[in-house]
Design a protein around this nucleic acid. Structure first.
Length: 316
RNA sequence: GGCGACUUAGCCAAGUGGUAAGGCAUGGGACUGCAACUCCCUGAGCAACGGUUCAAAUCCGUUAGUCGCCU
């Protein structure tokens, strides 16, 4: 029998964290964060991490589990997340995945296979060099020779994806396009509820702007300086996080911090838009238009009722 | 009141006689081991009116607005 899984996601600043905690409280759940940046220690205000008090005693997983200089990616996420899901079931609780990284959610929800191979950095670099010397199109042509379907699907300028497709072939001898096709057919092993929290665009954008102002007041700049003092550099994946890369740049280039914060707002708005595009494409989602609910309580109750459809009644 | 400059998409901005570059924003989209990443697509007929010309955003005139200087 398929086990229950609750997913709470949506664009940044839509209120996922608070909602997930309220729901977890009511359905006897524990939360697994699906956020590519909250996994890092020391990155708190910039990632809008929930505080201990806000968590209200609900157990959270995949927050503060890695140092900012450690390697982390979907494959690692999936492995850990699966482990925690089992652990939560063994406590007779319901796993609630909360966070805005759609790719990570997809990986777990559809049990995407990432094979056993490791990232091949040397090979990736070799291809990067090739692209730098001969151009993105030349690299893309190389991909077309080994995997025509991928080359057709990936734009030549998207070097990162072109490289991954080539790396896949290099490591497995099979085409990533075939692999993706297979994975796409998969049915979820879970009985799930996939909530996508949303707000009118205008409201969302003004919440984002306000939130960045609050992060600034809460000392985001100091947080970044502290990370830099610990040895964090802008080429690390963790430092590509919104708010981090802009401030590092401003500090290193000696640029105006005000414009750095304006840039953070702008890029966060762009990010929210990309997230929405992602969730629109996902199947079997339940969109929650937050402004249709009069109170937070009404919203929580609605979601909890929806969850009951897939949760055994002895959990309440 | 006089003199001068300017007026091109939501914003910035090229074009100075041959049928409107570019950037940003906005909106849409892709994404299956870096995903808060990376990448793609997306618009106006040039303040208004009237002239000159085969042809005007580009030249001339009038009007309006904006800015500067002067009295």
């Amino acid at each position: 029998m398929q086990k229950p899984l609750i997913i709470i996601t949506g664009p940044t600043a839509s209120g996922k964290t608070a909602l997930s905690i309220e729901i977890a409280k009511k359905i006897n759940g524990e939360i697994i964060s699906a956020d590519s940046m909250q996994v890092y220690r020391g990155m708190d205000t910039g990632t809008a991490k929930a505080t201990k008090e806000e968590m209200q005693g609900i157990k959270h997983y995949l927050i503060d589990e890695f140092e900012p200089w450690e390697e982390f990616n979907v494959a690692i996420f999936k492995e850990r997340c699966n482990k925690y899901i089992q652990e939560i079931y063994s406590h007779n609780k319901i796993p609630v995945i909360a966070g805005g990284t759609g790719f990570y959610i997809q990986a777990v929800l559809y049990n995407i296979d990432f094979k056993q191979t490791k990232t091949d950095n040397a090979y990736r670099e070799k291809l990067w060099d090739f692209a730098n010397i001969y151009g993105a199109c030349a690299l893309h042509n190389e991909l077309a020779k080994i995997d025509k379907a991928s080359a057709d699907a990936i734009h030549a300028n998207n070097i990162k994806r072109v490289i991954r497709a080539m790396e896949y072939y290099h490591q497995t001898g099979t085409k990533i396009s075939d692999h993706n096709e297979e994975e796409r057919q998969k049915k979820s092993p879970y009985s799930f509820k996939y909530f996508v929290l949303n707000l009118p665009r205008e409201t969302l954008y003004s919440r984002i702007n306000k939130r960045v102002d609050l992060m600034r007041m809460a000392g985001l700049e100091d947080e970044v300086r502290a990370l830099m003092a610990k040895g964090c550099t802008k080429d690390m994946v963790s430092m590509q996080g919104l708010g981090y890369k802009e401030i590092i740049n401003a500090i290193e280039q000696g640029e105006d911090i005000n414009s750095a914060f304006e840039k953070i707002k702008q890029e966060t708005r762009h990010f929210a838009k990309r997230q929405i595009t992602w969730f629109k494409r996902e199947k079997n989602t339940e969109w929650i238009e937050k402004d249709q609910f009069k109170t937070e309580e009404e919203l929580v109750n609605y979601c909890v009722n929806q969850c009951k459809e897939i949760i055994p009644s002895n959990n309440f």
